[in-house]
Amino acid sequence: MDATHKKYLRMNKLPHIWCPGCGDGTIMGSFIRAIDRLGYDKDDVAAVSGIGCSGRITGYLDFNTLHTTHGRALAFATGVKMAKPRLKVFVFMGDGDATAIGGNHLIHSCRRNIDITAIIFNNNIYGMTGGQYSPTTPRDKYATTAPYGTTDPHFDIAKLCIGAGASYVARGTSYHAKMLTDLIVAGAEHKGFSVIEIITHCPVNFGRRNELETPVDMLLWQKDHAVRMAKAEKMTADELADRFIIGELHKADIPEYVEEYDRLIERVQRGDTGRG
């Protein structure tokens, strides 16, 4: 391991608990390189996570780290950011964490446009509990709670977040690791609520049950099904049917929540209630 990675890891907490072939380690690597490029002081970074495999990332990262309750990472992170705005706040969630139990916090964080970067590990499954289907598991896939195939339609996380008002939404994969670093950097530099959805892979609890026998098969699936924005714009709906777009999907310049509240404080302290 090189010095850059070592600098941001709690080396005495390694090896990590993730299974061989898991995408989570790749994402952690991309994140570390993003922080290094951003040049943030480690003391000024708060990393907040939920429950599940992705939630364990905060244990390995050498920042101010908060491993919260299932689905609630964004709620805790909102308190952190509001109370100490100078902290750079990153939130790590899984697909079940972010869109099932924590779905309400996700859409409202988007709406508020609070300056937090949310990184969602979307591996289409509840991995830690043994492979139950999640709100992002596609139809007709197999899971321990879908032994005959899933019948539920699934969420498109990026679309959901754009619809809910997030001001920066991007999608990457654990295959396109360099691009992922770029997206995390751009998300962090964006003022407002940024969502980076990462299509990643759970070989043990998703791939094995769904004809993607090895981690390599799963990575190749990502490579073959991901389409960059510029290319997608030239493709027909039919051609895009079973593919997904990667890159920056949405960016808007709208007022950020903490700054707006600070302006309110300043105004109230001047005696201006805003009622003219």
Binding site: F76, A77, G79, N104, H105, Q269
Partner: peptide, 28 residues
């Protein structure tokens, strides 16, 4: 706001408890 403090109306009861803990983690 008069005291420079912050009030948040959260999306639900669970979120408000989470935000309170998050704020307290910074020493507030």
């Amino acid at each position: 706001p008069k005291l420079g403090g912050k009030f948040m109306q959260m999306e639900d009861e669970i979120a408000s408890m989470g935000a309170v803990i998050g704020a307290s983690c910074t020493g507030v």
